[in-house]
Design a protein around this nucleic acid. Structure first.
Length: 763
DNA sequence: GAATAAATTGTTTTT
DNA sequence: CAATTTATTC
């Protein structure tokens, strides 16, 4: 049995306040999951049956972890407790009762891609130019509206009545009709329709109200209005609602999360017990100090001060890079060093604001031979070949799923062209039937050849459907892939890309087999649902010996012994688009706070003077967030000192781009450029290097003794190549050379008098 | 209808 | 700049 004494007083209070509304304000790393799991275990210990407990989380991973930890505490399996994301819980509710609001139970979940496709189709049918009104934008409007619980008409009634909004409204209406016809729900619908079900069918709501006597919401600061309403409805009668969150970590405002949900909780529930978890168990004092200093610049926060008993720890290391490549090289070098000092790669994460930043980092890491894994890029399930298989499966489950049908009717190629599909679509529209119905009974207007092709396709689908019964999921998927020719379409081709596709499909079938083995409900329907709601971040069991590369957003809820935050520049982070709006700027700051508080022991910050992003060269100031961290906490990588005033007294060549001077072209090979695999173009374009350096006076004077300054084993910092180790120093006078090994670039030889290097560590 | 060339476009974050 | 969409040609 578990022991509540293992908790600190505040955590304990949280775990023991079982009745009535409770607001747990939990700072980063304050053990909120711990408090929450103990609370739920405590409920069970008090005789509350698990089926009366509902716990809503932000990610599937968090749900899984919570369930595991509760089971560990009470020492037995919990099966009847509802723990999951809002979306998955809503699907569960809808699968039971969605027929009451006019859908079939076998509804399909449309992902963003599918939604955009439906928008595009709607625009086309309404004869609206998709250049004046891009499908993606319309989808955003629709999504925003649904997050605010607005139907198409309500949305229009609230907003401006200009031409543009009228058209958006038209598309919105058509979009909704299309989804309804296809028996499909988009992501936002999962929440919205559940709400509608509750409102329109009080007995259903009543059932869940009686069932869920104790409701928990994790990451409450990231709930949107629909979620808020759902929770409110469910908890209204018994008022046993426990929400956990941190207003300082609200970072999803852009997709409809409403920070006021947490800020105003006490207004909604005046009798609420408010418990603050303020002791941080994760980070060193220095890191926590920095985080506190940054977040203190926000206004309208809940009163809260994080503190820790741990030692100050190492200083936060700050690096100003010349450009993004230098920044990446620095990261690689530090990672290697950490790795030598008993840090596993899985203890380290590199965080950035946008995915676009990951490319250079990945390139350098590969060169440095550091294994890494990126998260949050395109999902595995979003790959074309996977979506093709999924489309077949979805169509088999839901014949009305027009989007899936259109995707696969000619994939792999079976000679059904656009004009044929157009004819089918028109036919379906006229008879008010689904596309699949039109495939079953093609219109008379079609000539015999396309008719035959359509017939063959229908026969194929019918055959699959017959075989599905009684067949295990994995076997059936294998069958689908074989019969449809999804794999054999690549047979004979040996291109890298196609081999990878085949590999992915096989992996996908493997994933299905695994799902069938582990799941309580190994059906195709359940598998499709899982695929729709699970992200890569949730896929567990990924090899742990990898360095993690991800956006600051995806890092929420995670922790690492060492954390890098790259690209701390005005315009990038905080992002340009947030600069004008103070509220969005505060959200950026919260994002920074989230990033800093991911670190347990070491924090590394970097920014680049010059950055090539989106094919533009930007010269950005260092981020304001860096200024918000006191100097005493920051150690400058260049100068090795804390005080920035000292940084100004370092030799000019170390601080600024040197004056430009044209080098003779023959000079280039001496600098041993052209690392294998490096695009020549890229090398020529690096300013300041190909243009050459002007040696400083200080260095000229030192020339005679320079050789003694460097010896093998020393760590040096090169203006362009970043950090490296000295291998050898040879030659005399002005011919003196130095051979250095750089993590990301390999061996280079420089003229000792010319090379822009500084020693940072003696061997 | 398919393969290739040309043009366009997007780049914040994602359950 | 790269990746995707669209136009062109066979």
């Amino acid at each position: 049995m578990f022991d509540l004494n293992a908790l600190n007083p505040m955590q304990r209070k949280a775990a023991e306040t079982l009745e009535g509304p409770v607001l747990i304000l939990a700072g980063a790393g304050s053990g909120k999951t711990r408090a929450l799991t103990y609370r739920i275990a405590n409920l069970i210990a008090h005789g509350i049956p698990p089926y009366a407990i509902l716990a809503l989380t932000f990610t599937n991973k968090a749900a899984k972890e919570m369930k595991n930890r509760i089971e560990q505490l009470i020492g037995s399996e919990v099966t009847d407790m509802w723990v999951g994301t809002f979306h998955s819980i809503c699907v569960r509710i809808l699968r039971r009762d969605i027929e009451k609001i006019g859908y079939s139970r076998s509804f399909t979940i449309y992902d963003e891609d599918d939604s955009v496709k439906v928008c595009r189709e709607s625009l086309k049918e309404l004869d609206i130019d998709d250049k004046t009104l891009p499908p993606k934008e319309v989808r955003r409007y629709i999504s925003d509206a649904k997050n605010k619980m607005l139907t198409a008409d309500e949305w229009f009634a609230k907003g401006p009545k200009d031409y543009r909004c009228q058209r958006i409204h038209d598309v919105f209406v058509r979009y909704e009709a299309k989804l309804k016809n296809a028996n499909a729900l988009d992501f936002d619908d999962l929440l919205f329709k559940t709400l509608q079900l509750f409102v329109d069918h009080p007995p259903v709501l009543d059932y869940y109200r009686r069932k869920f006597k104790y409701i928990h919401v994790d990451e409450y600061q990231d709930t949107n209005q629909t979620q808020y309403q759902l929770v409110r409805l469910l908890s209204m009668t018994n008022r046993n609602l426990c929400v956990v969150g941190d207003d300082d970590q609200s970072i999803y405002g852009w997709r409809g999360a409403d920070i006021h949900n947490i800020l105003d909780f006490e207004k909604d529930y005046p009798e609420a017990a408010v418990i603050k978890l303020e002791q941080n168990y994760r980070s060193t004092a220095n890191i926590l100090d920095a985080a506190n200093q940054v977040i203190a610049h926000n206004s309208g926060r809940k009163e809260k001060t994080l503190w820790t008993e741990t030692a100050p720890g190492e200083s936060i290391l700050l690096f100003r890079a010349g450009d993004e490549r230098e920044e990446a090289a620095w990261v690689c070098e530090r990672v290697k060093q950490l790795h030598e000092k008993q840090y596993a790669y899985s203890d380290i994460a590199v965080l950035y604001r946008t995915h676009a930043q990951s490319r250079v980092l990945e390139e350098m890491l590969t060169r440095a031979g550091i294994p890494y894994k990126t998260f949050g890029g395109p999902r595995f399930y979003d790959r074309k070949e996977i979506k093709d298989i999924l489309a077949y499966l979805r169509l088999l489950v839901n014949h009305d799923d027009n989007v899936s049908l259109e995707r696969i009717i000619n994939t792999p190629r079976r000679s059904i062209g656009d004009s044929t599909v157009d004819a089918l679509r028109e036919h379906a529209l006229m008879l008010h039937q689904s596309l699949y119905d039109s495939v079953r009974t093609p219109p008379e207007s079609l000539s015999s050849r396309p008719r035959k092709c359509i017939q063959d396709f229908y026969t194929l689908m019918e055959g699959l459907e017959k075989e599905r019964n009684g067949m295990p999921l994995g076997d059936f998927m294998q069958l689908v892939v074989d019969k449809t020719g999804l794999i054999s379409q690549f047979k004979g081709e040996t291109s890298e890309e196609n081999l990878e596709r085949i590999q992915n499909m096989k992996e996908f079938i493997g994933a299905a087999r695994q799902f069938a083995n582990e799941s309580e409900e190994p059906t195709l329907e359940a598998f499709l649902e899982n695929v729709a709601l699970v992200t890569d971040l949730d896929r567990e069991g990924e090899a742990p010996q990898y360095l993690t590369l991800m956006t600051l957003h995806s890092a929420k809820g995670l922790e690492y012994r060492a954390v890098f935050i790259a690209g701390l520049e005005e315009g990038l982070f905080p992002n340009n688009r947030s600069a004008s709006d103070p509220e969005r700027l505060e959200e950026e700051r919260r994002l920074c706070y989230v990033g800093i508080t991911r670190a347990k022991e070491r924090l590394f910050l970097s920014y680049a003077k010059r950055r090539n992003l989106y094919n533009e060269i930007m010269h950005n100031e260092r981020s304001r967030f860096l200024r918000e961290i006191p100097d005493r906490l920051l150690l400058d990588q260049w100068t090795g000192v804390h005080d920035r005033a000292l940084a100004a007294s370092t030799p000019a060549w170390k601080r600024e781009t040197p004056p430009r001077m044209d080098f003779p072209k023959a000079r280039k090979p001496n600098l041993s450029f052209g690392t294998p695999g490096m695009k020549q173009k890229g090398v020529l374009n690096i300013p300041g290097v190909t243009k050459g350096f002007v040696p400083s006076k200080v260095r000229e004077a030192e020339n005679g003794t320079l050789k003694m300054l460097f010896s093998p084993g020393d760590s040096v910092l090169h203006r362009k190549f970043g950090e490296g180790k000295v291998l050898e120093v040879f030659g005399n006078g002005s011919d003196a050379r130095i051979r250095i090994f750089f993590t990301a670039y390999g061996e280079k030889i420089f003229s000792l008098s010319m090379a822009p290097i500084v020693k940072i560590e003696t061997h």
